[in-house]
Protein backbone atom coordinates (compact mmCIF):
# COMPACT_ATOMS: atom_id res chain seq x y z
CA UNK A 1 0.00 0.00 0.00
CA UNK A 2 2.76 2.40 0.98
CA UNK A 3 4.19 2.24 -2.49
CA UNK A 4 0.99 3.84 -3.83
CA UNK A 5 1.62 7.04 -1.96
CA UNK A 6 3.00 9.52 -4.49
CA UNK A 7 6.73 9.94 -4.21
CA UNK A 8 6.52 13.72 -3.82
CA UNK A 9 4.05 13.50 -0.97
CA UNK A 10 6.23 11.06 0.94
CA UNK A 11 9.13 13.37 0.52
CA UNK A 12 7.15 16.30 1.90
CA UNK A 13 6.06 14.11 4.79
CA UNK A 14 9.62 13.08 5.53
CA UNK A 15 10.89 16.66 5.41
CA UNK A 16 8.11 17.81 7.74
CA UNK A 17 8.96 15.07 10.19
CA UNK A 18 12.66 15.91 9.99
CA UNK A 19 11.91 19.57 10.57
CA UNK A 20 9.64 18.85 13.50
CA UNK A 21 12.14 16.60 15.23
CA UNK A 22 14.91 19.11 14.57
CA UNK A 23 12.82 21.81 16.21
CA UNK A 24 12.32 19.67 19.30
CA UNK A 25 16.00 18.76 19.54
CA UNK A 26 17.13 22.34 18.95
CA UNK A 27 14.61 24.08 21.21
CA UNK A 28 16.67 23.76 24.41
CA UNK A 29 19.75 25.03 22.59
CA UNK A 30 17.81 27.97 21.16
CA UNK A 31 16.34 28.84 24.56
CA UNK A 32 19.79 28.89 26.15
CA UNK A 33 21.25 30.94 23.28
CA UNK A 34 18.55 33.53 23.76
CA UNK A 35 19.11 33.55 27.52
CA UNK A 36 22.80 34.13 26.94
CA UNK A 37 22.22 37.11 24.67
CA UNK A 38 19.83 38.93 27.00
CA UNK A 39 20.36 41.06 30.04
CA UNK A 40 19.59 39.35 33.38
CA UNK A 41 16.09 40.78 33.83
CA UNK A 42 15.12 40.32 30.16
CA UNK A 43 16.07 36.64 30.44
CA UNK A 44 13.40 36.15 33.08
CA UNK A 45 10.65 37.64 30.99
CA UNK A 46 8.95 34.71 29.25
CA UNK A 47 7.93 34.09 26.56
CA UNK A 48 9.58 37.25 25.16
CA UNK A 49 12.88 35.77 26.34
CA UNK A 50 12.69 33.34 23.41
CA UNK A 51 12.53 36.05 20.78
CA UNK A 52 15.73 37.46 19.29
CA UNK A 53 14.99 40.98 20.49
CA UNK A 54 16.92 43.29 22.82
CA UNK A 55 20.02 41.21 22.21
CA UNK A 56 23.14 42.14 24.10
CA UNK A 57 26.62 40.74 24.44
CA UNK A 58 26.84 41.90 28.06
CA UNK A 59 26.06 38.53 29.61
CA UNK A 60 28.55 36.66 27.46
CA UNK A 61 31.13 39.33 28.09
CA UNK A 62 30.49 39.21 31.85
CA UNK A 63 30.84 35.44 31.80
CA UNK A 64 34.09 35.73 29.86
CA UNK A 65 35.74 38.14 32.29
CA UNK A 66 34.28 36.83 35.54
CA UNK A 67 34.89 33.20 34.75
CA UNK A 68 38.31 34.00 33.28
CA UNK A 69 37.19 31.81 30.42
CA UNK A 70 40.04 32.83 28.12
CA UNK A 71 42.61 31.10 30.28
CA UNK A 72 40.25 28.18 30.86
CA UNK A 73 39.67 27.71 27.13
CA UNK A 74 43.43 27.70 26.54
CA UNK A 75 43.92 25.05 29.24
CA UNK A 76 41.14 22.91 27.86
CA UNK A 77 42.60 23.09 24.37
CA UNK A 78 46.10 22.17 25.56
CA UNK A 79 44.88 19.25 27.65
CA UNK A 80 42.41 17.95 25.07
CA UNK A 81 44.92 18.12 22.19
CA UNK A 82 47.71 16.38 24.11
CA UNK A 83 45.38 13.71 25.47
CA UNK A 84 43.93 13.10 22.02
CA UNK A 85 47.33 12.64 20.38
CA UNK A 86 48.64 10.41 23.16
CA UNK A 87 45.51 8.26 23.25
CA UNK A 88 45.76 7.72 19.50
CA UNK A 89 49.41 6.67 19.80
CA UNK A 90 48.93 4.35 22.75
CA UNK A 91 45.79 2.83 21.22
CA UNK A 92 47.50 2.23 17.88
CA UNK A 93 50.27 0.29 19.60
CA UNK A 94 48.05 -1.90 21.74
CA UNK A 95 45.49 -2.46 18.98
CA UNK A 96 48.30 -3.58 16.72
CA UNK A 97 49.58 -6.06 19.28
CA UNK A 98 46.12 -7.55 19.76
CA UNK A 99 45.39 -7.77 16.03
CA UNK A 100 48.64 -8.75 14.32
CA UNK A 101 50.83 -10.39 16.94
CA UNK A 102 50.63 -13.83 18.49
CA UNK A 103 51.62 -14.33 22.11
CA UNK A 104 50.68 -16.68 24.91
CA UNK A 105 47.81 -15.51 27.11
CA UNK A 106 46.58 -13.06 24.50
CA UNK A 107 42.93 -13.88 25.16
CA UNK A 108 43.22 -13.39 28.90
CA UNK A 109 45.11 -10.11 28.54
CA UNK A 110 42.54 -8.88 26.05
CA UNK A 111 39.60 -9.64 28.36
CA UNK A 112 41.44 -7.93 31.22
CA UNK A 113 41.89 -4.84 29.04
CA UNK A 114 38.21 -4.75 28.13
CA UNK A 115 37.16 -5.30 31.75
CA UNK A 116 38.93 -2.10 32.83
CA UNK A 117 36.40 -0.17 30.74
CA UNK A 118 33.74 -1.06 33.27
CA UNK A 119 35.52 0.45 36.27
CA UNK A 120 33.62 3.65 37.08
CA UNK A 121 35.56 6.81 37.84
CA UNK A 122 33.69 6.96 41.15
CA UNK A 123 35.74 3.98 42.30
CA UNK A 124 39.15 5.19 41.22
CA UNK A 125 38.99 8.91 41.79
CA UNK A 126 39.78 8.97 45.50
CA UNK A 127 42.87 6.79 45.22
CA UNK A 128 44.05 8.48 42.03
CA UNK A 129 43.84 11.85 43.70
CA UNK A 130 46.16 10.53 46.40
CA UNK A 131 48.61 9.19 43.82
CA UNK A 132 48.64 12.50 41.97
CA UNK A 133 49.11 14.38 45.23
CA UNK A 134 52.02 12.21 46.36
CA UNK A 135 53.73 12.80 43.01
CA UNK A 136 53.26 16.56 43.38
CA UNK A 137 50.98 16.74 40.34
CA UNK A 138 48.09 18.65 41.90
CA UNK A 139 47.35 21.79 39.87
CA UNK A 140 49.39 20.70 36.88
CA UNK A 141 48.93 19.77 33.25
CA UNK A 142 50.50 16.36 33.74
CA UNK A 143 47.97 15.67 36.51
CA UNK A 144 45.16 16.46 34.10
CA UNK A 145 46.67 14.61 31.15
CA UNK A 146 48.38 11.41 32.21
CA UNK A 147 45.62 9.72 34.24
CA UNK A 148 43.22 10.49 31.37
CA UNK A 149 45.28 8.30 29.03
CA UNK A 150 44.25 5.07 30.75
CA UNK A 151 41.47 4.05 28.39
CA UNK A 152 40.87 1.03 26.20
CA UNK A 153 38.06 2.38 24.04
CA UNK A 154 40.50 3.43 21.32
CA UNK A 155 42.22 0.08 21.33
CA UNK A 156 38.88 -1.68 20.75
CA UNK A 157 37.87 0.67 17.96
CA UNK A 158 41.19 0.37 16.12
CA UNK A 159 41.40 -3.37 16.64
CA UNK A 160 38.06 -3.76 14.81
CA UNK A 161 39.57 -1.82 11.93
CA UNK A 162 42.85 -3.74 11.89
CA UNK A 163 41.09 -7.10 11.92
CA UNK A 164 39.41 -6.16 8.66
CA UNK A 165 42.66 -5.48 6.85
CA UNK A 166 43.48 -8.40 4.55
CA UNK A 167 45.83 -10.92 6.19
CA UNK A 168 47.89 -11.01 2.97
CA UNK A 169 48.94 -7.42 3.51
CA UNK A 170 50.82 -8.27 6.67
CA UNK A 171 52.25 -11.49 5.24
CA UNK A 172 53.54 -9.78 2.15
CA UNK A 173 55.13 -7.09 4.22
CA UNK A 174 56.77 -9.69 6.45
CA UNK A 175 58.29 -11.41 3.44
CA UNK A 176 59.73 -8.07 2.35
CA UNK A 177 61.32 -7.78 5.78
CA UNK A 178 59.10 -4.93 6.95
CA UNK A 179 59.09 -4.78 10.75
CA UNK A 180 56.12 -4.30 13.02
CA UNK A 181 56.62 -0.62 13.64
CA UNK A 182 57.18 0.22 9.99
CA UNK A 183 54.11 -1.78 8.99
CA UNK A 184 52.06 0.03 11.65
CA UNK A 185 53.18 3.52 10.57
CA UNK A 186 53.30 3.02 6.83
CA UNK A 187 50.41 0.65 6.18
CA UNK A 188 48.01 -0.02 9.04
CA UNK A 189 47.71 3.48 10.48
CA UNK A 190 47.21 5.29 7.15
CA UNK A 191 44.57 2.72 6.12
CA UNK A 192 42.71 3.37 9.41
CA UNK A 193 42.64 7.12 9.04
CA UNK A 194 38.83 7.50 9.27
CA UNK A 195 38.69 5.36 12.42
CA UNK A 196 41.60 7.27 13.91
CA UNK A 197 39.73 10.47 13.15
CA UNK A 198 36.60 9.25 14.91
CA UNK A 199 38.67 8.12 17.89
CA UNK A 200 40.39 11.49 18.00
CA UNK A 201 37.11 13.37 17.91
CA UNK A 202 35.51 11.25 20.63
CA UNK A 203 38.61 11.55 22.82
CA UNK A 204 38.71 15.29 22.31
CA UNK A 205 35.02 15.60 23.21
CA UNK A 206 35.41 13.39 26.26
CA UNK A 207 38.42 15.31 27.56
CA UNK A 208 36.86 18.68 26.85
CA UNK A 209 33.72 17.71 28.75
CA UNK A 210 35.47 15.94 31.66
CA UNK A 211 34.42 17.34 34.99
CA UNK A 212 34.92 14.91 37.87
CA UNK A 213 38.68 14.40 37.57
CA UNK A 214 39.71 18.04 36.96
CA UNK A 215 37.48 19.15 39.82
CA UNK A 216 39.38 16.83 42.14
CA UNK A 217 42.90 17.94 41.36
CA UNK A 218 42.72 21.53 40.09
CA UNK A 219 42.35 24.39 42.51
CA UNK A 220 44.33 27.25 41.04
CA UNK A 221 43.03 29.43 38.24
CA UNK A 222 46.07 28.93 36.04
CA UNK A 223 45.11 25.31 35.36
CA UNK A 224 41.33 25.37 35.47
CA UNK A 225 39.61 23.76 32.50
CA UNK A 226 36.52 25.24 30.95
CA UNK A 227 34.09 22.91 32.73
CA UNK A 228 35.52 23.88 36.11
CA UNK A 229 35.32 27.55 35.23
CA UNK A 230 31.67 27.06 34.26
CA UNK A 231 30.89 25.71 37.69
CA UNK A 232 32.19 28.92 39.21
CA UNK A 233 29.70 30.84 37.10
CA UNK A 234 26.73 28.73 38.11
CA UNK A 235 27.21 29.90 41.69
CA UNK A 236 25.85 33.26 40.55
CA UNK A 237 23.03 34.96 42.35
CA UNK A 238 19.36 35.45 41.63
CA UNK A 239 19.95 38.68 39.74
CA UNK A 240 22.14 36.99 37.19
CA UNK A 241 20.46 33.68 36.73
CA UNK A 242 21.53 33.69 33.09
CA UNK A 243 25.24 34.45 33.64
CA UNK A 244 26.03 30.76 33.40
CA UNK A 245 24.30 30.55 30.00
CA UNK A 246 26.85 33.03 28.67
CA UNK A 247 29.52 30.62 29.84
CA UNK A 248 27.69 27.64 28.34
CA UNK A 249 27.74 29.31 24.94
CA UNK A 250 31.46 30.06 25.15
CA UNK A 251 32.28 26.55 26.35
CA UNK A 252 30.18 24.80 23.71
CA UNK A 253 30.89 26.97 20.68
CA UNK A 254 34.27 25.45 19.76
CA UNK A 255 32.85 21.95 20.11
CA UNK A 256 29.79 22.70 18.01
CA UNK A 257 31.99 24.23 15.32
CA UNK A 258 34.18 21.14 15.34
CA UNK A 259 31.16 18.89 15.11
CA UNK A 260 29.74 20.76 12.12
CA UNK A 261 33.07 20.45 10.31
CA UNK A 262 33.87 16.84 11.18
CA UNK A 263 30.43 15.25 11.52
CA UNK A 264 30.73 13.23 8.31
CA UNK A 265 34.22 12.04 9.15
CA UNK A 266 32.97 10.94 12.54
CA UNK A 267 30.26 8.75 11.04
CA UNK A 268 32.60 7.44 8.33
CA UNK A 269 35.24 6.56 10.93
CA UNK A 270 32.81 4.61 13.01
CA UNK A 271 31.38 2.93 9.94
CA UNK A 272 34.79 1.72 8.87
CA UNK A 273 35.51 0.31 12.28
CA UNK A 274 32.18 -1.33 12.92
CA UNK A 275 31.31 -3.31 9.83
CA UNK A 276 31.17 -6.39 11.96
CA UNK A 277 30.88 -6.71 15.67
Amino acid sequence: MRADVPHGLRRVGRYSLLALVSAVVLFPIWAVLMQAFKSGPDALNHPESLLPTNLTLDTVRAAWTEGELGRALFNSVVVAVVVTICVMLVSLLSAFAFSFLQFPGKGVVFVAFVATMLVPAEVTVVVNRRTVESWGWLNSYQGLIIPSLASTFGMLLLRQMFLQLPKELREAASLDGVGNMRFLWEVAAPLSRPTLGALGLFTFLGTWNAYLWPSQIIKDRDHRTIQIALEGLSGAQINRFNLVTGGLVIASLPIFAMLVVFQRQLVRGLTAGAVKG
Binding site: G40, P41, L44, N45, Q237, I238, N239, R240
Partner: peptide, 14 residues
Amino acid sequence: ASLGPVLEVLGSGQ
Protein backbone atom coordinates in the same frame (compact mmCIF):
# COMPACT_ATOMS: atom_id res chain seq x y z
CA ALA B 1 23.15 37.96 51.95
CA SER B 2 20.53 37.72 49.20
CA LEU B 3 19.06 41.19 49.85
CA GLY B 4 21.23 43.08 47.36
CA PRO B 5 20.65 40.70 44.45
CA VAL B 6 16.90 40.49 45.22
CA LEU B 7 16.55 44.27 45.08
CA GLU B 8 18.52 44.38 41.86
CA VAL B 9 16.40 41.80 40.05
CA LEU B 10 13.15 43.34 41.25
CA GLY B 11 14.41 46.79 40.36
CA SER B 12 14.08 45.90 36.70
CA GLY B 13 10.29 45.96 37.06
CA GLN B 14 10.02 42.51 35.52
